[in-house]
Write a protein that binds this DNA or RNA. Structure first.
Length: 903
RNA sequence: GGGCAGUUGGCGCAGCGGUAGCGCGUCCGCUUCACACGCGGAAGGUCACAGGUUCAAAUCCUGUACUGCCCACCA
């Protein structure tokens, strides 16, 4: 005997192994089949599986499994991302904690080796977790953004863009993370509102006059001021423009200039211009040819400033400067101010705008085709509302800073000759005394040689002493090539030909620009094809109250814990039930128990059917023709459910698919069909009913398999002998088709009557506490014979479902004594309850009914009196309203007469 | 400052032109021979607000108010 409750743990372990051993998820380049391809958003090799992964990968898994069952050659490509700064930070922390060492203690080579060891250790551990989740990834070939093939792709891209002059090196103000000690691109910078201060400072006139008062949030940068700017329209300062003022504490004279960028209303209307430490100021500086002076270095320490502050941390210097200004009487005002602080998306420390020479990618030519693809709808977003932000972002693109001053990543494939690039290269000795190239300056004469491997000699001077650029590429550079590189691009491999472009990208909206936009651009640039046609943006899994899950808040739900506790299917299904495209998912253990209960319901329904199969041998064939109402009806319900379930998959609305199948199985199949079947099991019909049960259940398992693969596979295994299938795995079966010939509005209507009457009787039973064991007598009456047809024909259904002994059906039946009454549509229902009636209760119930019926009558009558309604509304609608009016009138009459009788 | 999304019973959400549905929770009754991770029943909502379009609006349009997110060089 099977256990009463489904126990997923053992089953899931067994099946996950079985699937992998059978290579169930492998795909071939089968020219006779349509490919369906999803390339996984490669998880960083930094950490463990979280709810976000669980959602994102479950969605992909459902799509892959569904399309495979649709008969397509479905491939889900696995891989991991080296994760640039994020991974380097993790390893640096680990190193500090375990060995009290910095990466500089190890030296570059040794450090990179350490990260590779980490990858060997943890890279595959990620996929062990993935396998446990039952995700249908073909794990025979796992890609990594830093492996050899992917490195070739990165080089090819770099080379081609260099030759096309998309890639260039330039000196400009970039975003610098002092903590990570690297440049960042614009989108890697986050803007947070911080409670800060706005200081009003006086810059005295060079001539000893009062000068001008400016407002700033960054007093420590005054030493780098190049000018004071005012708005040219500002009457207050008109006569000051052109004059010079003295920088406080630095005693250096700078001019007052006029520039449109200055907001007259803000602060004092005067702005200090510090081109080296602020993006706006940098632009102003360029317009006015101002000198650029740097006072904060790459470590966040003060340089080129009055001696007192030299070497100070920028934060300390700010405090000191304010203090000294106050003492000098030049601090006029200090006010609280919330300013937007730029922070690093990896470590959240404050970003310094920093002058430096970096590698960039010119974006305009790359963006244009991507904009077009989105605008024409060739590229589809789900939900579509992301199209506009996507296009707008591309239209306002700044050039992409791709060089990072870290060690972990694809090293820039550019070499320099120490002979002829002498002046452009800066070296420093590391802890081991080894000489390291630290900086490259094209301005100072470094001559680039683009090459994957170290060139044999310098093409300019034939020197042999060549060194590689010290920087690595932005991690998103290799990610942007991912949909191509996973198939072996730049080589035109068979995989590339067959599987590229992929079908759908499933990812979170938080990396739409960082990743998605760039894949679209590279894909179009190198192949002329979009890397995917559909972009499905899933939401974020939040906690029950809508808060983002985070370790510091302590509201994290660990998918592996939940899986261990409730089973993988439960975790998957709970996410899918809420997976509306683009919407965040509030998540709690409660939603998992609901899904777990569903899996259990499915399991128990199956258990019941299997129990009744005892004594039946071999496969039962699906009956050619069914005539019994319950059978016709359940086939109608099934066809309808499949239609909707398929629509859900097609439109990426998996919540629709999950909910539809949930309610079909539970409400229609279990609560009505099986309940009705119980009686029929006792009759000669048994085998026919069993055949239907078995086949509908098996089809339902197929339909649910992409969503909850384990429990469905487990049940299917036991069911197979009775179905007559040769497939070992559900995944190799065909997804149920919507059989339109099963649609049956008539059966639907009849069952609605039976269910309606049943419900009324059950309500009466419950209302008057009729013990479940006590059989009752029921009378159903109507004015016309035709209205009674259904009830008459299916008396047995109602008797069974309401525990009624004697059911009398007839025209204008006399009302029995001491009876509870109810109406359903054109039917009147009497349940005589001698001795059981609570008159007070019944009176209250009837009064309520009268109120409701009256309200209904009023509104329907009003509508039916409106000429415009009768003129414009479709006939169907008018008939419906008339029907409702009649039903309400009957209900009112019945309730009134019953109430009368009670008196 | 700009843009996007949301506002539906106690909570979390579907619905998106024909006067409201689900899950959880609550209350009542059931160990009925698949399932108490269950069965049957009940209570509970003028669908944020104000206009408009329409025979008909939770559903379409306009505005308002909150809430959340994204983008942005007011120091």
């Amino acid at each position: 005997m099977l256990p009463k409750a489904y126990e997923p743990q053992e089953v899931e372990k067994k099946l996950a192994e079985k699937w992998q051993n059978a290579h169930l998820f492998a795909a071939k380049t089968d020219k006779n089949k349509k490919p369906f391809v999803i390339v996984i958003p490669p998880p960083n090799i930094t950490g463990v599986l979280h709810m976000g992964h669980a959602l994102n990968n479950t969605l992909q898994d459902v799509l892959i499994r569904s399309h495979r069952m649709f008969g397509e050659e479905a491939l889900w490509v696995p891989g991991t991302d080296h994760g640039g700064i994020a991974t380097q930070n993790v390893i640096e922390k680990k190193l500090a904690k375990e060995q009290h060492k910095s990466r500089h203690d190890l030296g570059r080579e040794e450090f990179v080796k350490t990260v590779w060891n980490w990858y060997d250790e943890c890279g595959n551990a990620i996929f062990t977790q993935f396998r446990k989740m039952g995700w249908a990834l073909d794990l025979s070939d796992i890609r990594f953004t830093m492996d050899e093939k992917r490195a070739q792709a990165v080089f090819e891209c770099f080379k081609q863009w260099w030759e096309k002059k998309y890639i260039y090196r330039g000196k400009r103000l970039i975003n610098w993370c002092v903590r990570c000690s690297t440049a960042l691109s614009d989108i890697e910078v986050e803007h947070e509102q911080h409670a800060g201060k706005l200081w009003h400072l006086r810059y005295k006139g060079e001539d000893g006059s009062e000068g001008i008062i400016i407002a700033t949030t960054r007093p420590e940068t005054i030493y780098a001021d190049a000018a004071i700017a005012v708005n040219p329209k500002d009457e207050r300062f008109k006569n000051l423009v052109g004059k010079k003022v003295i920088i406080p504490l630095a005693n250096r004279a700078i001019p007052i200039i006029a520039d449109e960028a200055v907001e007259m209303e803000f602060g004092t209307g005067a702005l200090k211009i510090t081109p080296a430490h602020d993006a706006t100021d940098y632009e102003v500086g360029k317009r006015h040819n101002l000198p650029i002076m740097t006072v904060i270095n790459d470590k966040g320490k003060m340089i080129n400033c009055p001696e007192k502050y030299l070497g100070m941390d920028r934060e300390v210097c700010r405090k000191e400067t304010v203090k000294d200004l106050e003492e000098a009487g030049l601090l006029i005002k200090e006010e609280k101010y919330n300013n937007a602080v730029s922070t690093c998306y990896r470590c959240h420390s404050a970003i310094e705008p920093f002058m430096s020479e970096q590698w960039f990618v010119k974006m305009d030519k790359l963006a244009a085709p991507a904009i077009k693809a989105a605008e024409t709808g060739e590229l589809q977003f789900h939900p579509a509302s992301w199209k506009t932000p996507f296009v707008n972002w591309l239209k306002n693109l700044q050039d992409w800073c791709i060089s990072r001053q870290i060690w972990w990543g694809h090293r820039i494939p550019v070499w320099y000759c120490r002979e002829c690039s002498k002046n452009g290269l800066t070296f420093a000795k590391d802890q081991q005394g080894k000489e390291q190239l630290t900086k490259v300056s094209f301005e100072d004469g470094a001559k680039p040689i683009v090459s994957f491997n170290k060139p044999a000699q310098c093409p300019h001077c034939h020197g042999h002493d060549l060194v590689q650029d010290p920087d690595v590429l932005d991690t998103w550079f290799s990610s942007s090539l991912w949909p191509m590189s996973v198939f072996g691009w730049p080589e035109n491999t068979p995989d590339m030909q067959y599987f590229y472009p992929s079908s759908t990208l499933v990812t979170g909206y938080e990396i739409l620009y960082l990743w998605v936009a760039r894949m679209v651009m590279t894909g179009l640039d190198f192949t002329g094809k979009l890397p995917f046609k559909d972009v499905y943006l899933n939401g974020i899994v939040r906690d029950k109250s809508g808060q983002k899950m985070s370790k510091s808040k302590g509201n994290v739900i660990d998918p592996l814990d939940m899986t261990a506790k409730y089973g993988t299917d439960a975790v998957r299904f709970s996410l899918l039930m809420q997976a509306v495209p683009g919407k965040d998912i509030p998540y709690s253990e409660d939603s998992i128990t609901g899904a777990r209960n569903f899996c259990n319901k499915l399991y128990n329904a199956s258990r019941f059917i299997l129990m009744n199969m005892q004594g039946i041998n071999g496969p039962l064939s699906m009956p050619e023709k069914v005539t019994e109402l319950a059978d016709v009806w359940i086939l109608d319900r099934f066809a309808t459910a499949i239609k909707t379930a398929r629509e859900g998959i097609k439109n990426y609305n998996l919540a629709l698919t999950a909910n539809t199948l949930y309610h079909f199985l539970w409400d229609d199949f279990c609560d009505w069909y099986i309940e009705l079947a119980k009686q029929r099991f006792q009759t000669a019909e048994k085998e026919k009913v069993m055949a239907l049960c078995v086949h509908i259940l098996y089809e339902t398992l197929k339909a649910l398999h992409p969503l909850i693969p384990f429990v469905t596979e487990e049940i299917a295994t036991s069911l197979k002998p009775f179905v007559g299938t040769t497939e070992e795995f559900l995944l190799n079966e065909k997804y149920p088709e919507c059989n339109a010939s099963w649609f049956n509005a008539d059966a639907q209507a009849k069952m609605t009557v039976i269910q309606g009457v049943t419900k009324e009787i059950r309500t009466i039973r419950a209302q008057f506490n009729v013990p479940p064991t006590l059989k009752i007598t029921t009378v159903v009456s109507a004015k016309n014979e035709a209205d009674l047809d259904t009830v008459k024909s299916y008396e047995d259904y109602i008797k069974l479902m309401t525990k009624t002994d004697t059911l009398t059906v007839g025209i204008n039946q006399a009302k029995p004594r001491q009876t509870a009454t109810a109406t359903f549509d054109k039917l009147t229902i009497y349940v005589p309850l001698t001795g059981l009636i609570d008159f007070d209760k019944e009176r209250k119930r009837l009064e309520k009914e009268i109120t409701l019926a009256n309200a209904n009558i009023v509104s329907r009558e009003a509508r039916l009196k409106q000429e415009n309604f009768l003129k414009h509304a479709p006939q169907e609608q008018i008939d419906k309203t008339r029907g409702e009016l009649a039903a309400a009138q009957l209900a009112l009459a019945q309730a009134q007469s019953s109430l009368e009788d009670l008196k």
